[in-house]
Design a protein around this nucleic acid. Structure first.
Lengths: 192, 192
DNA sequence: CTCTTTCTTGACCGCTCGGTCCAGAAAGGG
DNA sequence: CCCTTTCTGGACCGAGCGGTCAAGAAAGAG
């Protein structure tokens, strides 16, 4: 009935996600996006509405991707504690470029959440989701006798969630890696 | 010999600090600063050079202020562990406005450090300083028998530094407070 | 008082920002 | 094949950006 889109909106969203993730919201201009996505300005607006809406869509996509990846990591049958440990350690060991980029949710929490309710809600949802997944894994660990007595899965999960956010912050600086690694190992000592 | 300044550069810097702290670098315009500082645009440029230099000066000032406050907190003679605990807890319990503002160093780490070497260096210096202060306090605690055997003060300090950064991140969202509180208490369990 | 020097003020600069518009291209239904 | 509909590309928009400048006001030295 009418002309079809020439570009793949999903690929465009992914490209936008990567740019916003790397540079943040304010520091990314529409001109940057036009260049990176390889499509015209008007097509971006026709497809995504506005810069802010595009950002929020990208954030949503990021959350979906990392949520499903973490669900996979933490829900494998068998021992639960090693999976938790592995996840925390993976946050702690990153190369410098990865560290500079950090976590898109963390970045959004700091840059936009304080004055953007929609962004804040998504950040909150993402943290909740991670906390829930970790709590479930730790509860499973407790049920399987992997956890010392007297540890509360939810409280432990909260500590880990907060610690992971901190790791993404200190990872932004040049020599953040050793700090992050030590911090992760020390926190994991609470699981022994 | 010549006309004297009519405004107090120190007060102006403090006002700029508060504005940058609240809104971040990119989201604060020179027009905002002119309005808030109550002095003319050109006077700001004559005194501080550029928006970026003003920001870095404000950051430096913030670091000096919080460093000396924390030095006072952590260097009081007597038991060292309660001071550490109190500091961590003070990070964890904040009202909503304080939470939204967060920590200026954390904010800078996320927004500017990845692409501004000068900002990155200052963030790093501030984290180093906090780590050093905490390490010293924990070493003192260990020497006074307040700490369980087998705990390394530096590693513990790194864990706390990272955790505090995380607290400042989750505090940005609406219901971050309970998460932060639980996380702090759980982490402090490592000091028992 | 006058001269020199610095500070203050607000108009002004070129540029980039996010966002819109329109003319033309392309695709499918009749 | 043509007509309707949507998409594309780029020129274009007003607003706001960071930064500069020139003219006048004020203060101390002589």
């Amino acid at each position: 009935m009418a002309r079809t889109k020439e570009f793949d909106p999903d690929a465009a969203l992914q490209a936008a996600l990567e740019l916003f993730w790397q540079r943040g919201y304010e520091a990314t201009s529409m001109a940057d996006l036009v260049e990176r996505l390889g499509i015209a300005r008007a097509s971006i607006y026709a497809t995504f509405g506005s810069k802010r809406e595009l950002y929020l869509r990208a954030l949503e996509r990021y959350c979906e991707q990392s949520d499903s990846a973490r669900l996979l990591d933490l829900s494998r049958p068998g021992p639960a504690l090693p999976a938790v440990r592995a996840l925390v350690r993976r946050y702690a060991v990153t190369d410098e470029e990865e560290g500079r980029r950090g976590c898109f949710v963390t970045n959004t929490a700091v840059e936009l959440a304080p004055h953007d309710p929609a962004a804040s809600r998504r950040v909150e949802a993402s943290l909740d989701r991670l906390e829930t997944l970790l709590t479930a894994a730790l509860a499973r660990a407790a049920a399987q006798g992997e956890l010392p007595a007297g540890r509360d899965p939810r409280t432990l999960a909260r500590m880990l969630v907060v610690l992971l956010q901190g790791i993404r912050v200190v990872g932004k600086t040049a020599d953040g890696a050793p700090r992050a690694r030590d911090a992760a190992e020390q926190a994991l000592a609470l699981l022994d």
